[in-house]
Lab assay of single mutants.
Amino acid sequence: MDPFVVLVLCLSCLLLLSIWRQSSGRGKLPPGPTPLPVIGNILQIDIKDVSKSLTNLSKIYGPVFTLYFGLERMVVLHGYEVVKEALIDLGEEFSGRGHFPLAERANRGFGIVFSNGKRWKEIRRFSLMTLRNFGMGKRSIEDRVQEEARCLVEELRKTKASPCDPTFILGCAPCNVICSIIFQKRFDYKDQQFLNLMEKLNENIRIVSTPWIQICNNFPTIIDYFPGTHNKLLKNLAFMESDILEKVKEHQESMDINNPRDFIDCFLIKMEKEKQNQQSEFTIENLVITAADLLGAGTETTSTTLRYALLLLLKHPEVTAKVQEEIERVIGRNRSPCMQDRGHMPYTDAVVHEVQRYIDLIPTSLPHAVTCDVKFRNYLIPKGTTILTSLTSVLHDNKEFPNPEMFDPRHFLDEGGNFKKSNYFMPFSAGKRICVGEGLARMELFLFLTFILQNFNLKSLIDPKDLDTTPVVNGFASVPPFYQLCFIPV
């Protein structure tokens, strides 16, 4: 058959498939802009700032609406009420993970971030239990974070109060905490193996944040037939998995079943207990991918939040002064901060919360999916439909947070200066898919920041009023603009 005829037939089939998918069930789905064949609503979305586009569309179609990214149908949730109703009140029905062709290629359905069903539930339950087990290797997770915080302070001392970009050092600290939990080992910041790991993690975040990856996920045929950065992403992930597998083999040879040292040991012990169960989800494949998931999810998000926190503290020296006064009063100079201190430091706690609220790190979270046909607000959402959640619409709700575009710790303080919780605080998402490392991340943010401010004054290279804190939105995360500062020993 003539190649031209084959091409026309293929394009015609794709067009018909697109029209059929977009028209099927439209009477039951939430409203939304009319999609174009094949490309859907992509032309109506700013790929570099999806969150802003969703906010604009919500003003037209309401808090629940339908979009098509290519052939992929998505239902968008915008605003606290619908997000709570879906992710919390109907948590089980909305607990699936959205379709990610690239991740599915890399992870093969294993791990904790992109798995679904029984596998996801069992691996998540085990990971939560293990991360909360403060007795691994007779050292609590808090001990590990405190140790890394001391190392971080010593690295900052080496800058000798000269101007520096904190990106690298602030990236090393949370990565080392995860390494300590998974591998029972922290690395020197100049260790070549550690630097290679950091390089792969950072490069992957840069790649994932590009519009090209959005295109690959919406048109998965590209993955096999086109060159691009997605190939580098898959190569980096394969490198990390190979490295983790080597460490798993080392653990198998040296493990003491009665004295687990780290996450890998705990997983291997669980595998041993379930070795007679042919349906067990505790396999080497799941261990390797879960460890890679924890490394990827637990490094860049925390380091970016820390980097943004220091920029905001530079911009608002009056806030920094209040935090340091609270540190001096509650902790002093002669001991290290600990998590028990947080309950006695409402202002510092409010500042950490406000940093996370203000920066809105992951504006749309990772997409969910419905696990069955769901009736939601008089609409029928078919099983498997991807759910896109606007966390921006919750964290920047102007009824809950007056002047949401302003950095103001009073958003989390009552009139008496006591810490005030808010149900709208969802930087880790909400419901059954809430970030498994939430507790660890909150511990790291509090301890790293208090250790830094206990030991250093922060000095800006320019007038604080002239510092730009506008986030650089890159399609996946909101990151701070480049800046330098000086760490002046107190």
Score class of each variant (00 low, 15 high):
residue 2 D to M: 11
residue 8 V to F: 15
residue 9 L to M: 11
residue 10 C to T: 12
residue 12 S to N: 10
residue 13 C to I: 15
residue 14 L to D: 00
residue 16 L to A: 14
residue 17 L to I: 15
residue 18 S to E: 11
residue 19 I to W: 11
residue 20 W to V: 13
residue 21 R to V: 12
residue 21 R to H: 15
residue 25 G to L: 06
residue 26 R to H: 13
residue 27 G to H: 14
residue 28 K to S: 10
residue 30 P to N: 02
residue 30 P to S: 01
residue 31 P to G: 06
residue 33 P to W: 00
residue 33 P to Q: 00
residue 35 P to H: 06
residue 42 I to F: 15
residue 43 L to W: 13
residue 47 I to Y: 09
residue 48 K to F: 07
residue 51 S to A: 12
residue 54 L to Q: 01
residue 57 L to I: 10
residue 59 K to L: 10
residue 61 Y to D: 00
residue 63 P to I: 00
residue 65 F to D: 03
residue 66 T to K: 02
residue 66 T to A: 03
residue 73 R to K: 13
residue 75 V to P: 01
residue 76 V to R: 01
residue 77 L to Q: 00
residue 77 L to R: 00
residue 79 G to T: 05
residue 81 E to V: 05
residue 82 V to N: 05
residue 86 A to P: 02
residue 86 A to D: 02
residue 91 G to E: 12
residue 92 E to K: 07
residue 93 E to R: 07
residue 97 R to N: 02
residue 99 H to S: 13
residue 101 P to R: 15
residue 102 L to V: 14
residue 104 E to N: 15
residue 104 E to C: 10
residue 104 E to I: 09
residue 105 R to H: 08
residue 107 N to H: 09
residue 110 F to N: 11
residue 112 I to E: 03
residue 117 G to T: 05
residue 118 K to W: 11
residue 118 K to Q: 12
residue 120 W to F: 04
residue 121 K to S: 11
residue 123 I to M: 12
residue 126 F to G: 01
residue 128 L to M: 14
residue 128 L to P: 00
residue 128 L to N: 15
residue 129 M to R: 10
residue 131 L to A: 04
residue 132 R to G: 12
residue 134 F to Y: 13
residue 134 F to G: 13
residue 136 M to K: 15
residue 136 M to L: 14
residue 137 G to E: 12
residue 138 K to Q: 15
residue 139 R to Q: 13
residue 139 R to V: 15
residue 141 I to G: 05
residue 141 I to C: 08
residue 142 E to S: 08
residue 143 D to H: 10
residue 145 V to L: 09
residue 149 A to E: 02
residue 150 R to H: 12
residue 153 V to A: 05
residue 153 V to L: 08
residue 154 E to M: 10
residue 154 E to L: 08
residue 158 K to T: 15
residue 159 T to V: 08
residue 159 T to G: 08
residue 164 C to M: 14
residue 166 P to F: 02
residue 167 T to P: 00
residue 167 T to L: 07
residue 169 I to C: 06
residue 174 P to I: 08
residue 174 P to E: 08
residue 175 C to L: 14
residue 177 V to H: 01
residue 177 V to T: 05
residue 178 I to Q: 07
residue 179 C to E: 03
residue 179 C to H: 15
residue 180 S to V: 06
residue 181 I to V: 14
residue 181 I to L: 13
residue 182 I to T: 06
residue 185 K to E: 14
residue 185 K to L: 07
residue 189 Y to H: 07
residue 190 K to R: 13
residue 191 D to I: 02
residue 194 F to S: 04
residue 203 E to R: 05
residue 205 I to P: 06
residue 208 V to A: 15
residue 210 T to W: 14
residue 210 T to Q: 12
residue 211 P to F: 11
residue 219 F to I: 13
residue 222 I to C: 10
residue 224 D to M: 06
residue 226 F to Q: 04
residue 226 F to K: 03
residue 227 P to H: 08
residue 229 T to K: 15
residue 231 N to F: 08
residue 231 N to V: 12
residue 232 K to S: 07
residue 235 K to Y: 15
residue 235 K to W: 08
residue 239 F to T: 12
residue 239 F to D: 15
residue 242 S to Q: 15
residue 242 S to L: 12
residue 243 D to F: 15
residue 244 I to E: 00
residue 246 E to F: 10
residue 249 K to D: 05
residue 250 E to D: 13
residue 253 E to H: 15
residue 254 S to E: 09
residue 254 S to C: 08
residue 256 D to G: 05
residue 256 D to K: 08
residue 256 D to W: 03
residue 256 D to H: 07
residue 257 I to V: 13
residue 257 I to F: 12
residue 259 N to F: 08
residue 260 P to H: 03
residue 261 R to C: 05
residue 262 D to R: 01
residue 270 K to I: 07
residue 271 M to K: 08
residue 273 K to C: 11
residue 274 E to Q: 09
residue 276 Q to C: 13
residue 277 N to L: 11
residue 277 N to S: 11
residue 277 N to K: 12
residue 278 Q to E: 14
residue 279 Q to S: 15
residue 282 F to E: 01
residue 282 F to P: 01
residue 284 I to A: 08
residue 289 I to D: 04
residue 291 A to L: 14
residue 292 A to S: 15
residue 293 D to F: 03
residue 295 L to D: 00
residue 296 G to R: 14
residue 296 G to D: 15
residue 296 G to K: 14
residue 297 A to K: 13
residue 297 A to G: 10
residue 301 T to E: 04
residue 303 S to A: 14
residue 306 L to F: 07
residue 308 Y to F: 12
residue 309 A to Q: 02
residue 312 L to R: 01
residue 316 H to D: 05
residue 316 H to Y: 14
residue 317 P to C: 06
residue 318 E to M: 12
residue 319 V to R: 02
residue 320 T to W: 06
residue 323 V to T: 06
residue 323 V to S: 06
residue 326 E to M: 02
residue 328 E to S: 14
residue 330 V to H: 10
residue 330 V to M: 08
residue 331 I to T: 04
residue 331 I to Y: 00
residue 332 G to V: 04
residue 332 G to Q: 04
residue 332 G to M: 00
residue 337 P to N: 01
residue 338 C to Q: 13
residue 340 Q to V: 11
residue 341 D to R: 03
residue 342 R to Y: 11
residue 343 G to I: 10
residue 343 G to T: 14
residue 343 G to P: 13
residue 343 G to L: 14
residue 343 G to S: 14
residue 345 M to A: 00
residue 347 Y to G: 00
residue 347 Y to C: 03
residue 348 T to N: 01
residue 348 T to A: 06
residue 348 T to I: 04
residue 351 V to G: 00
residue 351 V to N: 01
residue 352 V to Y: 04
residue 354 E to M: 02
residue 354 E to A: 02
residue 355 V to A: 07
residue 356 Q to W: 14
residue 358 Y to R: 06
residue 359 I to L: 07
residue 360 D to I: 03
residue 362 I to T: 10
residue 362 I to L: 15
residue 363 P to N: 02
residue 364 T to S: 10
residue 366 L to K: 04
residue 367 P to Y: 05
residue 368 H to I: 03
residue 368 H to V: 03
residue 369 A to W: 03
residue 369 A to T: 12
residue 370 V to W: 00
residue 370 V to L: 09
residue 372 C to S: 11
residue 372 C to Q: 13
residue 372 C to Y: 08
residue 375 K to W: 10
residue 375 K to G: 07
residue 376 F to V: 07
residue 378 N to R: 10
residue 382 P to A: 05
residue 385 T to G: 01
residue 388 L to M: 11
residue 391 L to D: 00
residue 396 H to K: 15
residue 399 K to I: 15
residue 400 E to I: 06
residue 404 P to F: 07
residue 405 E to S: 15
residue 406 M to I: 12
residue 407 F to K: 00
residue 409 P to V: 08
residue 414 D to K: 06
residue 414 D to M: 06
residue 414 D to W: 05
residue 417 G to D: 09
residue 417 G to N: 15
residue 420 K to C: 09
residue 422 S to P: 02
residue 424 Y to L: 08
residue 424 Y to K: 09
residue 427 P to C: 11
residue 427 P to L: 02
residue 432 K to N: 15
residue 433 R to V: 03
residue 436 V to T: 07
residue 437 G to K: 01
residue 437 G to Q: 03
residue 437 G to E: 02
residue 437 G to L: 03
residue 440 L to H: 02
residue 440 L to I: 14
residue 440 L to R: 02
residue 442 R to K: 11
residue 446 F to C: 00
residue 449 L to S: 03
residue 450 T to M: 05
residue 458 L to S: 03
residue 462 I to E: 15
residue 464 P to L: 12
residue 464 P to I: 12
residue 470 T to G: 10
residue 471 P to G: 08
residue 473 V to I: 12
residue 477 A to E: 14
residue 477 A to M: 09
residue 478 S to E: 07
residue 478 S to L: 07
residue 479 V to L: 15
residue 481 P to G: 09
residue 484 Q to I: 06
